[in-house]
Design a protein around this nucleic acid. Structure first.
Lengths: 229, 229
DNA sequence: TTATCTCAACTCATCTGATGACTTTTTGGA
DNA sequence: TCCAAAAAGTCATCAGATGAGTTGAGATAA
């Protein structure tokens, strides 16, 4: 077991064993060095690992703390990695996304309030009216994010946000066929919207699944290159 | 932007930009130092971060490589973190698990082969017959894992495995009420099994959802302490 | 020629010491 | 009592040295 592994599991165990709870502060670097029996470099690498995973946070000048350990934060750690997956191996993940989108759409249909209905309506209208090819994808994301939020599960909201950001990088709307794709996409949004507003979970679920399936079709067919800013 | 951030995003960009593909080797530490303009310590911390996220791998004496970038590997990086979440904030995640279990059960019902049927049957029988309280949870895990595998999506298999490992740490069967819990649990398994064997996706989906919901009920009611080995 | 062994070069792993930068607490004065 | 400056504590970063594992070229023997 390497020095970094010792430090990593040592730190992790402090949380798993209940010695430290969410938000609590670790002993100082110096104290941890002697407790874990590794050098400062190894300890710092272990801290960075747990930090990348969203489990702990280091604050310069203050100390190192256990994070709030909220599921949505943990899922958020996927954001920087999902973008790196090649399109080829991504279809499994789209199946996952389809299942989850169906679920949030159904939940939203069951729970949406009048105020939220108005908000969602505004987004659909704005999306269909958007001429700017920069704005359309942004509204698209907002539309789906709002549905996720209405469904009431922050973890799912974050996870689907991660997936969606990945899709957006492909910029389907910017393809030569972008106009037609947008037309079909907007129609899909309208279908989802109608089902949700009518409080029809089954229809919303089916519409969302179909919407994702459509996206997968486009990606498989066009295989657009990712934008690398 | 801190030195580690510079190194982290620099490395990440080498993959995102396509300069390095899955399995390819990074330049040596020394070469990266001058390219990224940070010290060895900072570079190593950044490498560890990406390594913890499952994106790259360092091999002692050989070099640092991009991982295979398979979705299931990325999801696997959650294994060490989900176990740390407190029960209180875990219900959102169980909703996620319920949705996914329903899906894999339905998929399995649609796709199961005769050989797989026999295999699954053996597991159900063994589980109901298991007297040893150590073996029962293991067979339980195998039963669900097999269903996931039959459903044909490695990413989902890994993700659900992570969630299930989390549940197992609570050792419901070891409670005073364990015998009754096992009886109900085994009945749930039998229901799921029957639906899958009958190629009835809808029934399988419902049975799986109910099985997860039952688990959540138990956890909420008993709030057992985690086992910390 | 082919197979195997040896060793040098290359690579990551770890430790140590020193310095900088930021935050929090304490302290002293108004 | 309030506020600002000082001090203490903490993480951030760099640089150098040494250890340990891997790899491949070249020597050697079959």
């Amino acid at each position: 077991m390497s020095a970094v592994d010792i430090a990593f599991h040592g730190l992790r165990h402090m949380i798993a064993s209940g010695r430290l709870g969410a938000g609590e502060k670790f002993p100082s670097e110096t104290a941890l060095l002697s407790e874990l029996g590794v050098s400062r470099g190894s300890l710092r690498e272990a801290v960075r690992m747990l930090s990348a995973l969203g489990v702990i946070e280091s604050r310069h000048g203050s100390g190192t703390y256990v994070s709030q350990l909220r599921p949505e934060e943990i899922m958020g750690s996927l954001a920087l990695t999902v973008d790196l997956l090649p399109l080829s191996g991504l279809l499994d993940m789209y199946e996952l996304r389809g299942v989850l989108e169906s679920h949030t759409a159904a939940q939203a249909a069951a729970r949406i309030s009048p105020e939220q209905t108005a908000e969602l309506f505004d987004l659909v209208e704005a999306m269909e009216a958007a001429a700017d090819p920069e704005i359309a994808p942004e509204l698209d994301a907002q539309f789906h994010a709002l549905i996720d939020r209405i469904s009431g599960n922050p973890t799912l909201t974050v996870l689907l946000g991660v997936f969606r950001a990945r899709s957006r990088a492909y910029q389907l709307f910017a393809l030569p066929e972008g106009a037609e794709i947008r037309r079909v996409s907007d129609h899909g949004h309208r279908t989802i919207f109608n089902a949700i507003v009518l409080h029809d979970p089954a229809a919303a679920s089916a519409a969302a699944a179909s919407h994702v399936a459509q996206t997968v079709e486009w990606l498989r067919f066009y295989q657009p290159a990712v934008r690398t800013p």
